[in-house]
Every structure is written in C-alpha cells, then in structure tokens.
Simulated scan of single mutants.
Amino acid sequence: MSPQTTPPRTAIAQAIPSANNATTASATITPSVFDHLPDSALLREADLVRSPKRPHATPPLPFSAPTLWRMAKAGTFPKPIKLSQRVTAWKVGDVRAWIAAQTNATI
C-alpha cells in the first residue's frame, strides 16, 4: 500500500479555513461614516439600516428597513425628506437627535 497523498488545494479551498488550520479568517468591518458627517448631510435607507447588499457596513440603526419605514409612518422616527419621486433621505442631525433621545429615555 502506498501512503495516501492529499491533492493540492485550489484557490477557493485555500480561502476557506480548515478546522486544523491555526489561522482563522475574520470579517473586515468598515467603520461607519455616520459619526463624521455634518448634521445637514442626508442619508438614504441603505446608509441607516443593515442591508444584505452591504453586509460589511456598520449601520447606525439596529433594525431593518421595514421597521424604519413603519416607525417613520407612525411618527416614532424622524420624517424623511422626499428628494424626488423615488428618492427619500433623512437628515443626519434628525437621526442623531432621535438616537440621543432613545439613549436618554432608556437611562
């Protein structure tokens, strides 16, 4: 019997960490630009909540897009600004004030 040899790993297989591999892959998290924007800046929905299209981004709000719209409709979140028929955005200052109010309400 000849000793078994393992086939060379492909590029895809090399990218996947194995159980016996000492190095583990870690996700790269991009810091949010929310803290560096002026209060007059405008943010769209994808910048405020987690989006499957941008899983690496860190949004400032911990809930989903449907919850964002539900809260805006109910008046428990700042009202968005309609920029055109299909484009809606929120003022950064309004969102920051809402976050501060939520933080103060829970303390």
Score class of each variant (00 low, 15 high):
Asp47Cys: 08
Gln85Phe: 09
Ala41Thr: 12
Leu68Tyr: 08
Ser64Lys: 00
Leu48Val: 07
Pro78Tyr: 02
Arg86His: 14
Thr103Trp: 01
Thr5Leu: 05
Pro31Lys: 08
Ala89Gly: 04
His56Tyr: 00
Trp98Gly: 07
Ala100Ser: 05
Gln85Ile: 15
Ile81His: 07
Met1Asp: 08
Gln85Ala: 15
Ile81Tyr: 06
Val49Tyr: 09
Gln4Lys: 04
Phe77Trp: 00
Arg50Asn: 15
His56Ile: 04
Ile12Val: 13
Ala25Ile: 08
Ala15Met: 12
Thr103Asp: 09
Lys53Phe: 12
Pro62Asp: 14
Thr103Phe: 02
Gln102Gly: 02
Ala11Thr: 04
Thr76Trp: 04
Trp98Asn: 01
Pro66Glu: 06
Ser26Tyr: 05
Ile29Tyr: 00
Thr58Phe: 11
Ser32Gly: 10
Arg54Leu: 14
Phe63Ala: 12
Ala97Asp: 13
Gln102Phe: 00
Asn20Asp: 15
His56Lys: 03
Arg44Ala: 13
Arg86Glu: 10
Thr106Trp: 06
Ser2Cys: 06
Pro3Gly: 06
Trp90Gln: 08
Ala100Phe: 07
Ser84Leu: 12
Thr30Pro: 01
Val95Tyr: 09
Pro78Gln: 04
Asn20Leu: 12
Pro52Met: 15
His36Arg: 15
Ile99Lys: 02
Thr10Met: 12
Asn104Ile: 14
Ala41Lys: 05
Ala74Met: 03
Ala74His: 02
Leu83Gly: 07
Ala22Gly: 10
Arg96Gln: 12
Gly75Trp: 03
Thr24Gly: 02
Pro78Leu: 05
Leu48Tyr: 00
Met1Phe: 12
Ala11Ile: 01
Asp47Ile: 13
Thr103Met: 08
Ser26Thr: 01
Val49Gly: 07
Ala22Arg: 06
Leu43Gln: 14
Ala27Thr: 04
Ala11Gln: 00
Ala41Gly: 07
Asn104Gly: 08
Ala65Ser: 14
Lys82Cys: 08
Lys82Tyr: 04
Pro59Cys: 11
Leu48Asn: 10
Gln4Pro: 07
Asp94Tyr: 03
Ala13Val: 03
Gly75Tyr: 03
Lys79Ala: 09
Lys73Cys: 04
Pro59Glu: 14
Ile16Leu: 06
Thr24Arg: 08
Ala13Gln: 05
Val33Cys: 11
Thr58Asp: 15
Pro55Gln: 12
Pro80Ile: 07
Thr30His: 00
Val33Ile: 13
Val87Leu: 06
Ala27Gln: 07
Pro3Glu: 13
Arg50Tyr: 14
Ser18Met: 06
Ala101Arg: 07
Thr103Lys: 08
Thr88Ala: 13
Thr106Pro: 00
Ala19Lys: 03
Asp39Trp: 05
Ala15Val: 11
Leu43Thr: 13
Leu68Thr: 12
Ala19Met: 11
Pro38Glu: 15
Asp47Phe: 06
